[in-house]
Design a protein around this nucleic acid. Sequence first.
DNA 1: TAAAAAGTTGATTTATATGGAAACTATTTG
DNA 2: CAAATAGTTTCCATATAAATCAACTTTTTA
Lengths: 110, 110
Amino acid sequence: MAIKDKKLKMMTLDQLKDRDIGEVGTPERDQYEFELKMEVLGNMIKSVRKERHLTQEQLGQLIGVQKSQISKLERNTKNVTIETILKVFNALKANVKFSVQLDQSDLNIA
Amino acid sequence: MAIKDKKLKMMTLDQLKDRDIGEVGTPERDQYEFELKMEVLGNMIKSVRKERHLTQEQLGQLIGVQKSQISKLERNTKNVTIETILKVFNALKANVKFSVQLDQSDLNIA
DNA sequence: TAAAAAGTTGATTTATATGGAAACTATTTG
DNA sequence: CAAATAGTTTCCATATAAATCAACTTTTTA
């Protein structure tokens, strides 16, 4: 039987990442994972802003910055301070939760 | 009856904060809430480090900084970048979860 | 399909987070 | 209690996040 002989190769997404980007813990992989998170963060600002039916200019006015700054936070996001994140999501009336998971227990900030 | 006449005054912690620090949305209150969060973050680094039985020096070596830098993150914390937070908790093998709560739905980063 | 509105990008400035070095103050331990 | 270890603080340099302005591109709408 074909299916028996074929020795199907299956891979999880993590296995693919390990192979193509690098193992967890290597600088390349850490870099990748970080950039991914920053991208998600940027997209999140954008989607919440849209949810609130605000333009970048309007959101900028709420926190006292130019629309170009908002654009950068949504797209160019390399690294951000917590303060900036909180300022933005505060203005968007969204609640930011930040938690640290340590084996069993969950410690919560904010 | 004493208890009936006395008109007991009760206050929630939030009411106290509103009165003594300022209403939510005022610069004073926002500042206060932010500093509180930073303090909690610092304490969290410290407690997770202790959990792992590491000295500041050892944690520093894991991420390539001096012990004084760790001390600052644990105590003097005014503001931090996401990158720094992730670097530290990564080294402590703790999982950082960051989520944005928008009315009903929860959007998750990381 | 123009004009207006919204969003992006690049060059630049300013503010500040990150970091080291060293001297100091606890805290621990033999 | 003295020495060693751990943690803090101050002064300082450097890297970079935050922000503006202006010119540009993309999208929307009258």
